[in-house]
Design a protein around this nucleic acid. Structure first.
Lengths: 192, 192, 192, 192
DNA sequence: TATGAATGAGATTTCATTCAT
DNA sequence: GATGAATGAAATCTCATTCAT
């Protein structure tokens, strides 16, 4: 009662679950309040509006995950190692908090449109790393966006299948396959 | 009658654009009516409800696209050819009607949950084809869902980047790269 | 049902009564809807918001009354006649629609602050007329705003007393007294 | 205790300013607390409710001002002197605390309705004095309420103009004009 | 078939007030 | 006395849907 930040955290976790389960628009303030065991008005002590709650949940985690990825890739020198480390980190994070990652993964248009070009995201980090690798001829040259899209697709779609329970194993167990596959995606293309 | 079906088509196209642009829940009947230049009530002459409109738009195209993919793959014998044909067809369709494909691609949770297991979808067709190819040892054995996810990821994420204008070229121009890449995704993994 | 403007008029009259009776903030949309015999949502087909309703009710009548006063004063040549005609018109209007005039009279701060300097109001018309009269030496010179305030005060405060039922006679019956008094207010002051 | 009454005074002054600036209903407890630099709950240590705060601010000052007016008029014998003294006192008070007087002047309906007939107000004092003057034939007979309304109007409307910055001079400087004008309002009317 | 005003349930949000600390 | 997080009733507003024309 004294510590409002606990309540904020409670609201965040509860909302996250409901947003992932039913969608943002389909989740009402009443739903959140009931699930969190708080009054409807309480939410507004911690978040300006439902929209802002959804956005804060998205953007803060989206950005902090990107930062973490960036930190991880910096520990390695080659594209291959950087990529492997990033993928493994992604898998570990996903398994650790699948609800949060589902939220980020299945993020609606609405949220994504608010991502400004200056925000560091997983996509920008990945593109940066790939671009560097190409510059150092670690992989053949090709359009960076395209390369990033394909690598991203491999990992994300597997995560989506996992989120939808089409795949049973934890992502971490698939780390090696994902790393190998992504590498093969990168090295095979381009002008040799 | 002629007129009536034109109105229905008008509603369908207008809704599709708005749904892709703003999201389904965020698009109001009033938005659709205004954009289509019809009265709000008119929509209900052609569709039972907004939900049904969104679902009809989704399911009919989702299913007919899956059927088309299935027809296409049947024309070929090997997994490699089947896959190549399917990807090329996907690219051609996307370029032809990017709005429709964005709608299918960025489909909300809400819609995907209504997809029953007995419905033939692009995913089931892809899994079937891959499973057959593995059975015939055209590619190494591995979990079919995982293989399908990765192949799907490569193609879909490129399409998503295209939908978000991160990539400029038409998908059709990327057909060969996508085909090659997907093939490499499949052949490299599994137990040799 | 066909004619929406009837409903709008009904909402306007009903709101006016309630706003005068209870105050704007104290009157709820539910109050208005119940009193008008319409659904709550119906109000929003005709007015953007409660605030806008209150403002439209105020500003349109405030301005059109000012225009009417201006038209009236133009029919006469001397300040004395102009003033008399304006006061008589004010009295007649008040008696004709006491609720509307009470609304304008007791208008809250909130509304008055939205009155932009370019809007023609009863006050600006009165000041203009008095200024002209002073210029033509029909009454002694003095600060126009002060003169206008005092004349206005005489008439308005009597109207306020009438609105609060402190005075029983119709304003029209007090027309001559008000005209005489206001004239005496103007001629007695200033540097002779 | 010393501290406590200081807080109460702080709340009173802060509320007064905000009430005048934005209106009572439009001013929230949070507004007051923020402006006064206190916690929201603190207000309730000093006032039962927001309504009671608004009412206390209004009624106490309204009544004490009326008493003061009454005391002032008692020092004089003739209506003319009484009226002059009251007007001068009003001007002095207004200049001394314009915010308070704006609050009393622009008092909402809501407050005025709570004024019971047995309460002594500026209006009742004025009516009493005028009635006495008429009884003593100092001014011609006429309806007391009407006479009071007109005299009141002259003074109040000038104060309102001052409150809205339409007039620049302090009210005290206008004392003589107001006194003269009000006297002329009274003596000119009635049955000679 | 088409219209569009009207509906009313339900969503979001506000805010005076309470109460544990 | 003071705090400020929590409350929850009530207000405003939205919008899918209906229905008389």
């Amino acid at each position: 009662m004294r510590d409002g930040s606990k309540t904020k955290e409670l609201i965040a976790r509860t909302s996250l679950h409901l947003f992932v389960e039913k969608g943002i628009t389909e989740t009402t303030i009443r739903d959140i309040a009931a699930a969190a065991g708080i009054a409807e008005g309480t939410l507004y002590r911690h978040y300006e509006s439902k929209d802002q709650l959804a956005w804060e949940l998205f953007s803060e985690n989206y950005v902090s995950f990107a930062r973490e990825l960036d930190r991880v890739q910096e520990e390695y020198d080659t594209l291959k190692d950087k990529l492997a480390a990033m993928i493994r980190r992604f898998c570990a994070f996903f398994d650790q908090d699948p609800v949060l990652f589902s939220y980020l993964l299945l993020a609606q248009h609405h949220q994504l449109k608010k991502v400004t070009p200056d925000m560091e995201t997983a996509v920008t980090v990945l593109q940066k790393v790939i671009a560097q690798g190409m510059a150092k001829s670690e992989v053949p040259e090709m359009e960076v966006e395209l390369a990033a899209a394909m690598v991203l697709g491999v990992v994300l779609q597997v995560a989506v299948f996992k989120a939808y329970n089409r795949i049973n194993q934890d992502l971490s167990h698939l780390g090696e396959i994902l790393v190998d596959t992504c590498w093969r995606v990168l090295v095979g293309n381009g002008t040799p």
